[in-house]
């Protein structure tokens, strides 16, 4: 009997710990929403974390102050490009590494893996120069192409393809199915779980990315949402209510995608982390 009682007291402590932690975790968002809804004169007045005013004009003013629609459009193009190419190219390469025999396969795969150890900081300057020499500076190509393949994604796809039995493919081969049809009609649909994980992670990476778009774009027309937000901070930093509305624009897409697909995110992270 005393065992049961101490158990529930323990749970109360656990809950207090978890609730305080969760509060700290989302406190910045409470503040953002509250501040973005306050009329200009009242930003510093309490309450700070629970909206009592609903001054939506801030959102309109922030939206019109700089071309946010353009920034979001640019980020969307960049994210779509990265998601589509990265998933397709990585799946194709992962399949070749898993199922096709060719010369120097192991050597090539090891070279791929080694490039994962080269930090982004080292790649930044040479890639900037390469993009300039190719005449891609300040274009969507510059934003998409260098990130159109991910070694980590190739690795995940390869592991998955190794795990599917070859009998399916063998029977397709016997019926005269070409490599392309086999891959796109039979193999790729089987790899849906890896594909979904990769689509979600590459989208999030692309949408939240900052440093590469910052150095590789120049004109107002090509700014992505994160670069645009940082520019907005520079110009309207003292207008807290506008800046918090603008910050919400940049967070919302990531947040919505995450909340809709949270199960896949968390499963994806758990499995990729454990496989290391």
């Amino acid at each position: 009997m005393s065992h049961k009682k101490s158990f529930s007291i323990k749970n109360v402590f656990l809950y207090i710990f978890l609730v305080i932690g969760a509060f700290i975790s989302i406190m910045p968002f409470l503040w953002l929403v509250t501040t973005s809804l306050k009329p200009p004169g009242k930003i510093f007045s309490a309450p700070l974390l629970f909206p009592t005013h609903f001054y939506f004009e801030n959102y309109i003013e922030a939206w019109n102050a700089v071309p946010f629609a353009r920034y979001i459009f640019n980020s969307t193009i960049m994210s779509l490009g990265i998601v589509i190419f990265q998933t397709l190219f990585s799946a194709m390469a992962g399949y070749a590494f898993a199922k096709i025999r060719f010369k120097f396969k192991d050597a090539l795969f090891i070279i791929f893996l080694i490039t994962m150890m080269i930090p982004d900081s080292v790649k930044m300057i040479p890639n900037f120069l390469t993009i300039k020499n190719l005449g891609w500076y300040d274009t969507y190509t510059a934003l998409i192409v260098p990130r159109a393949v991910s070694v980590f994604a190739i690795f995940l796809f390869r592991q998955f393809f190794l795990s599917i039995p070859s009998s399916i493919e063998e029977s397709a081969r016997l019926e005269g199915c070409g490599l392309f049809r086999l891959f796109f009609q039979i193999v790729l649909p089987l790899s849906k779980p890896v594909m979904v994980t990769n689509i979600l992670f590459s989208f999030l990476f692309a949408w939240n990315d900052f440093l590469w778009p910052l150095i590789i774009t120049d004109s107002q027309k090509m700014r992505t949402i994160q670069v645009g937000l940082s520019y907005f901070q520079g110009r309207y930093g003292i207008r807290w209510e506008l800046l918090s509305a603008a910050t919400i624009f940049s967070i919302l897409p990531s947040l919505i995608v995450f909340i809709i697909a949270q199960k896949y995110f968390i499963e994806g992270i758990s499995t990729s982390g454990l496989k290391e």
Binding site: T115, P126, V149, V151, L179
Partner: peptide, 24 residues
Amino acid sequence: SLAIFLIPSIIIIFVFNLFPAFYS
């Protein structure tokens, strides 16, 4: 077909991931 499966990855990895280490 094999070339098409691997060439996009090989080009991008060599140009934007491997080459930068040497060029730096």
